[in-house]
Design a protein around this nucleic acid. Structure first.
Lengths: 335, 335
DNA sequence: CTGAAAGCGCTAACAG
DNA sequence: CTGTTAGCGCTTTCAG
């Protein structure tokens, strides 16, 4: 293994000069820097990560805790993870993958052993058991999602309340008067994931404000469940003309079910969704939707962490405003 | 930060004794071990990962390189990753997440800086550009999938050829005489991912052996594409009664399309698939399928790496035999 | 602008 | 069975 002293000797300088040439933490004459860089190249030098971490007390590794549980849409998690890795690399950091399964112990382990410099935690619950730990940890963290009390923490997410509102307002603008929300599976509400509830809040509030009749329907993530909900909606709310879907796996099956029940989308029924753009675009009838910007959230989360690592203050809450894209699934209400 | 010398002092022993008590690399009297453990607990001691890596030249971190490209089924990647993390943790290792995007540079970086002890590489191509690097690296690796020449490497995957055969044999046993394979998107074949081709080989070979007529149809991963393939199959092969699907996103849409075209599954058409069991079970008509055992592959991959890290020899090739589960989508051919 | 040298916290000989 | 000690390779004072 070629080490910093080898490079130093080869370049005719001291080890510290090599170190500084690499880190840029003090001025180096152009000439010296050239020689050092050449030596590094010629010898194929790579600083030892452990040694570096020991001496600098920085590992340049971030922890990413991903959720495993039912009711989360896998592609969203994946896209988020990829975005975190990509952004972290741009800041010269790597990403250690943890599963939620490990719980507090996992977080504590990687933080206390100095394996990681900072942490990103996904799928935060309203009363997430990890909150006290994250507050007490000596390392900075960013949470994806909002707990009930985010005091002293850094949180980021799509503004789901505004997203719910945006969908309703879009439908209201098109003249719809009776709307329904087809939401996440019941377990998501039971375990009190904030984002699901925020959508409901926004949906209901906007409907009330605009004087629309509204109803909310949790739905399992299966085509069969979609079919049942569709039938139920038609039976119980014959005047329904607008639907908001916040449940990725059910989006396409639900539209299929409506059409099989004799309702045309968007002719008889306008459908809007909160989901990744790729999904909205790939449905048979492209769906007007508020984008779930996983990639942006991942990128911003890393940027927040980098600022915190750099000693800067960051806002406790970052709510990304919803962007609604109109597609083929919504239209003015029939006269 | 509490360090090993603190623990040693607190327990009235030397640092090395603490270290050995932790690693078990030499015998410690029961009494001493008790005192050490208590000191560790009382002080909340956590060994510094970087220091440990530097002194022992072991980081206890594995690299996992995940694919990003079109045509891969995200849940499979995710499940695999989770299984790798879980298994790695059982062996006291953590997992660093790399994207394929980084390419050779990423692999070289984490290996050369000693950030990781070993690597797992997914989505291996027939002529994967990373092969020379992986062969030359000083650290052990395991590849998921088989390249054209696996000499000197360690590879593991489902035996896709046998999987293709198993599907055909299942159909043949049920009396079907004309079968079709609906395969992965064209780009998967173009970039020569071995597993897709292996399925074709097995499918065709088994069909030939059993005297069945067979045809192969790459298919994009969209419901629309599924519909087109279904129509094409009915038009060109009216005698078709058996279909093998090797394309997760298309499985359900394809069955829908067949039924909309007037064919009952399994009454008129038997369908079998190579896909994760969860998918096969969740389709409206549960599909007889060969399981894609992502979790098992992930677990075995880590076990192989652990053996290599321990200095043991491991087989170059590990092919997991297919397991076919009969469900509702296959039935004897109509008289 | 550059060098010398003191650690960072741990492991693993070596010695007993 | 336990203690002493010499590094692991790098960063960062402190000096110049």
């Amino acid at each position: 293994m070629v080490k910093i002293t080898d490079v130093a000797r080869h370049a005719g300088v001291s080890p510290s000069t090599v170190s500084y040439a690499l880190s840029g933490k003090r001025p180096i004459s152009e000439e010296t820097r050239q020689r050092v860089e050449e030596a590094i190249r010629e010898l194929g030098y790579r600083p030892h990560a452990g040694a570096r971490a020991l001496a600098s007390s920085r590992s340049n590794v971030l922890a990413l805790v991903i959720p495993l549980r039912a009711g989360i849409h896998v592609p969203v998690v994946m896209q988020f993870a990829v975005s975190v890795v990509t952004t972290a690399r741009r800041h010269d950091h790597d990403v250690l993958l943890l599963t939620q399964e490990e719980g507090d112990d996992g977080l504590r382990r990687v933080a206390d052993t100095a394996l990681v410099d900072a942490l990103i935690v996904m799928d935060v619950q309203l009363h997430d058991p990890r909150l006290p730990l994250l507050r007490s940890l000596e390392r900075p963290s960013v949470m994806i999602g909002f707990p009930a009390d985010s005091e002293g923490l850094t949180c980021i997410d799509l503004d789901f309340k505004a997203a719910g509102e945006a969908c309703v307002e879009h439908l209201a603008r098109l003249g719809h008067r009776v709307v329904a929300l087809v939401g996440s599976p019941p377990e998501v509400y039971v375990r009190q994931t904030a984002f699901a509830q925020r959508v409901v809040q926004g949906f209901t509030a906007a409907a009330d404000r605009s004087g629309l009749s509204s109803s909310v329907h949790p739905c399992e993530a299966s085509p069969a469940a979609a079919r049942l909900v569709a039938e139920q909606l038609l039976r119980e709310q014959p005047a329904l003309t607008g639907v908001v879907v916040h449940n990725e796996p059910v989006l396409e099956p639900l539209i299929d079910a409506f059409e099989q029940l004799g309702l045309r989308v968007p002719g008889d029924l306008s459908v809007t969704a909160i989901c990744p753009d790729e999904l909205a675009e790939s449905v048979r009838v492209p769906v007007s939707s508020v984008a779930l910007p996983s990639a942006e959230v991942g990128e911003r989360a890393v940027q927040l962490l980098m600022k915190k690592l750099g000693g800067s203050a960051v806002p406790e809450a970052t709510l990304l405003p919803p962007r609604l894209t109109e597609r083929a699934s919504t239209a003015p209400r029939n006269a």
